[in-house]
Amino acid sequence: MNVVFEAELWEWDARRTETWTFVTLPADVSEEIRERAAGPRRGFGSVRVGVAVGATAWKTSIFPDSSRGYVLPVKRAVREAEGLDVGDTFTVTVELLDY
């Protein structure tokens, strides 16, 4: 399963000393992933994915969020390589690897 979508980078303050940034997968995509990934899952309900943003590609996991659907963490190296800041909207390609 491959999906391409536009998403806004947002920030979640996990702890006082750490800041995490994410994009939210579209609701219909999150629902389809839930259906395909039913059964035993990895820690925190994560699903392994391949991701591309601009010229940067990497493997990571997406995580279910009770209010948003699935969310994708975007690490600092990717943000710096692609010149992304919180609030920016950009194209994301996600490929499910394990389901």
Rank of each mutant, 00 (worst) to 15 (best):
82 E>W: 02
83 G>E: 12
50 G>D: 05
79 R>C: 09
78 V>H: 01
83 G>H: 01
55 A>N: 07
81 A>D: 08
59 K>D: 13
51 V>P: 00
77 A>M: 05
66 S>Q: 15
64 P>I: 08
50 G>P: 01
57 A>H: 07
85 D>I: 11
72 L>G: 13
50 G>S: 12
57 A>P: 00
83 G>K: 06
48 R>W: 05
68 R>A: 15
73 P>K: 11
86 V>K: 04
81 A>S: 14
48 R>K: 14
59 K>R: 14
66 S>N: 12
54 G>E: 02
60 T>G: 05
67 S>C: 03
51 V>G: 04
84 L>F: 11
69 G>Q: 04
79 R>H: 08
87 G>Y: 08
84 L>A: 06
53 V>E: 04
62 I>N: 00
51 V>E: 06
86 V>S: 15
49 V>M: 05
55 A>F: 03
53 V>I: 15
81 A>G: 02
82 E>A: 12
48 R>H: 02
73 P>E: 12
86 V>L: 12
49 V>S: 01
69 G>P: 02
78 V>N: 09
81 A>L: 10
85 D>W: 13
66 S>Y: 06
67 S>L: 11
75 K>Y: 06
81 A>E: 14
71 V>W: 02
48 R>E: 09
70 Y>A: 12
76 R>F: 06
53 V>N: 05
54 G>N: 07
64 P>L: 10
61 S>Q: 01
73 P>F: 11
80 E>T: 15
86 V>W: 04
81 A>W: 10
84 L>R: 00
48 R>V: 02
69 G>V: 13
76 R>C: 03
55 A>P: 09
84 L>Y: 00
58 W>L: 03
86 V>T: 12
75 K>H: 07
86 V>Y: 05
51 V>C: 03
83 G>R: 11
68 R>E: 13
85 D>F: 11
55 A>L: 11
82 E>H: 09
79 R>N: 00
64 P>K: 10
51 V>S: 00
54 G>F: 02
